[in-house]
Design a protein around this nucleic acid. Sequence first.
DNA 1: CGGTTGTTTGAAGCGCCTCAAGCTGAGTGG
DNA 2: CCACTCAGCTTGAGGCGCTTCAAACAACCG
Lengths: 254, 254
Amino acid sequence: MQDALIRKLESFEELTDADRAALRMFVPRVRQVGPRTDLIREGDAPGDVHLILSGYACRYKDLPDGRRQIMAYFVPGDFCDLNVFILDQMDHNIGTISPCQVVEIPRQAIEEVTTNHPRVMRALMWCALVDEAVLREWLVNIGSRQSDQRIAHLFCELLLRLEAVGHVNNNSYAFPFTQTEVADTMGLSDVHVNRTLRELRRLELITLKGRILTILDVPHLKAYCGFNPNYLHLRNARWSGRRQVPWLRNVQGG
Amino acid sequence: MQDALIRKLESFEELTDADRAALRMFVPRVRQVGPRTDLIREGDAPGDVHLILSGYACRYKDLPDGRRQIMAYFVPGDFCDLNVFILDQMDHNIGTISPCQVVEIPRQAIEEVTTNHPRVMRALMWCALVDEAVLREWLVNIGSRQSDQRIAHLFCELLLRLEAVGHVNNNSYAFPFTQTEVADTMGLSDVHVNRTLRELRRLELITLKGRILTILDVPHLKAYCGFNPNYLHLRNARWSGRRQVPWLRNVQGG
DNA sequence: CGGTTGTTTGAAGCGCCTCAAGCTGAGTGG
DNA sequence: CCACTCAGCTTGAGGCGCTTCAAACAACCG
């Protein structure tokens, strides 16, 4: 398990033996968490850092009027709160969508490592920076695309992110979100998400049944929403194609 | 100038003499930049890190259809691209709004410091994490508030951010953005921004003339949009009230 | 097997957009 | 000093995209 994390980080930052030894202090406390369960709540002091091994989770805020806004999806291999743990208190919630396997890394371990092992810190920062780039693109998505392109863009992004960790087969992947959750993500009503999905199906761009999403025509879907993958900062030589991330290969997805 | 940066960082992270010495390697190359000028363009390899001393700038993406989405505003004291400099290439642009004084910190200097001075790195990370929290709130803003509350929320946020660096007088601050720029920020049309501003004026919440924005009734405006400042992670003891950031006090704003 | 959660469809209305035109103010040149 | 220009602001009219409300249907589960 520790070796797995090390392998991921080493894919973009060379580590010394001392770095690796320090990383092994990330005691692997794996927790099985049910669906629709909060991992962290607004107001909490950030403690352990959470790493998703299997399943999907999300970052969200509850609004005064009872609605909620989902701000990020987490898929296997993603850190939930790496980019928060320095701050004083959480300004949002993190909760699971599907059942999840979560690794809890003690904050102290992170701090020790980042203080004494700059290369590890750089590697973790890189993860956080890509997450932020995704967040920026979500802002663009919500701010400037209409519903059909907006949802198509989400599907394209998840395709690439899940491909990078070996969770896509034949352009299909697990999609355990309800239409209401998609609505809370995209800034739309659930009714309109339903109609938009119907339209994407009618155009034979996707199918979505039994919580499995299939993209029928990837180039067409990408063109449809003007998808530009540069913001994901995927390093093709390392991440894409047939190559899987070894430490996630044998874990059940979605 | 270097001392100024050191002072800012020390407000939330104690530094050693060695840390401070390293920070002085941030050779202060101050540049005067005209309005509506790009500092960095999409596709560029991140180089120097930019720190705004005076004026306003923004982060934005150009879209295939010619529209653009603004994703962040930068005000005096903000780093533009601290959270990007590790990545391979820029996935967006950064440009000025008003004339700006910009400090360019060589990437090499940042890397040297972050490698050898973990406390400085933590301080810089803190800046970046707050910027990301702001970005998340912008997503909430665009995704779930309608135009009047959306724009009101922006005004409340800028009030607090500018207060923290001593650029607010009597609830007034410089607002050099055109209505089209506000529209590109909020995911609205410029026509609708115009009508929304008219409405906020009619309700006697704000005035906006000669590029000066005045909030006539702060508590009312905050209540109007349900503003919750927690995401700014302001440390009141240090940042708010009468206390100014010394290194920005004598620089002309907006 | 009912109960509950999620999906689907219809109908009516509002918020925001587009198109279009006129207005205002600042800068420029004759 | 006024005419001209141009960017930004303002206002009107019409239409579309999305929302809300409502109800029926489907799928899952104890």
